[in-house]
């Protein structure tokens, strides 16, 4: 198991995703002799997990069952321990494409936060790229570095515990792409430029507030960035449902012979309904995550 390479069987030391339902999953560190509690009972790692195929059904002690999935950055995003607000897959997918990421890309990122985006970047730039990620919170930087090790992607990433606005990314002239998710991205624009390759590259800034976007765009333009473009993307989930729509009874078109009398028995009313497969939107959805501002650094 690694976040950048599939394996077929669960091994001691892997991180596996236990799937209970589509909105209930959890990551499990597989360890010989260890146990994990779920709502369906206990999972015994030695007998239930190790040596089993990823994707297998595992019966828990109370008779309920779960599926054990191979970790992916997307599953990690929905199961990871939150230490900060995180980026979700919809934004991550857009960022990945708009930054032109691919195997071999060198990327700078700040802040690292809980590492949701970092894992997705690492998956895409492996096996020859590198991620330089900067996090000013020491405990968070340490925690994420530990996770990278557990997920066997630590050879692809350098975690730096510093303030990107003051100290930059710790590298110069190496990055194909820079990603900023910090409170004042405009203060880091010059560092982004320094970190990037001479021949140019792409930059992205994620900000929840439009005032931040305004300042960032100005800073980007001042530093000679081109093709500055701000967008917003939202995910819309369609829940598939079978619904039954009753059809009203319009009565018979035969002439009525006598006044309907309440005491007399009525012909059994035909209550028919049409059953259709359709989708319904969830009652509430995240209506705003953040604005994504992209720009191109020209050759300098």
């Amino acid at each position: 198991m690694s976040f950048v390479e599939y394996s077929d069987f669960i091994q001691d030391g892997d991180v596996a995703i236990v799937y209970l339902s589509h909105d209930n999953m959890m990551p499990v560190k597989v360890q010989q002799g260890a146990q994990t509690q779920t709502r369906y009972g206990v999972i015994r790692h030695s007998t239930d997990l190790i040596g089993k195929r990823y994707g297998s059904k595992v019966t828990c002690s109370k008779g309920g069952w779960v599926h054990v999935l191979h970790p992916t950055p997307e599953l990690w995003t929905v199961t990871l321990p939150h230490r900060t607000q995180i980026l979700y897959t919809t934004d991550i997918a857009t960022i990945t494409m708009m930054l032109d990421l691919k195997p071999g890309s060198v990327v700078c990122e700040s802040g690292t936060g809980s590492g949701s985006l970092s894992h997705a970047i690492l998956r895409t730039i492996a096996p020859t790229g590198h991620l330089h990620t900067v996090e000013f919170h020491q405990k968070r930087a340490e925690a994420v570095a530990e996770e990278f090790k557990e997920h066997r992607v630590d050879h692809l990433v350098t975690v730096r515990n510093q303030d990107v606005c003051k100290d930059g990314f710790g590298v110069a002239g190496v990055a194909d792409a820079v990603f900023l998710d910090i409170p004042s991205p405009w203060e880091a624009v010059r560092h982004a430029k320094t970190a990037m390759k001479k021949h140019g590259g792409r930059v992205c800034s994620f900000s929840p507030c439009i005032e931040q976007v305004q300042k960032t765009c100005e800073a980007l333009a001042d530093h000679g960035f081109e093709e500055i473009n701000t967008l917003e993307i939202l995910l819309r989930v369609h829940d598939v449902r079978t619904v039954s729509l009753p059809l009203p009874d319009f009565g018979s078109d035969a002439p009525s012979e006598k006044q309907p009398d309440s005491s007399e028995k009525l012909p059994a009313p035909k209550h028919t309904a049409a059953t259709i497969k359709t989708t319904t939107p969830p009652r509430e959805i995240p209506g705003h995550t953040g604005y994504l501002t992209f720009a191109t650094k020209p050759r300098t």
């Binding site: 799937y19 589509h22 599926h67 999935l69 919809t90 439009i210 976007v213 305004q214 765009c217 100005e218 500055i228 473009n229 701000t230 967008l231 917003e232 993307i233 939202l234 995910l235 819309r236 989930v237 369609h238 829940d239 598939v240 989708t279 604005y291 501002t293």
Partner: peptide, 21 residues
């Protein structure tokens, strides 16, 4: 299969200019 999801995305671009965003 598990984790089935039917989705689409909503995409909006912005004009960002001083006082005209």
């Amino acid at each position: 299969t598990v984790n089935l999801r039917l989705t689409d995305t909503w995409l909006r671009h912005y004009q960002v200019l001083p006082n005209r965003t």
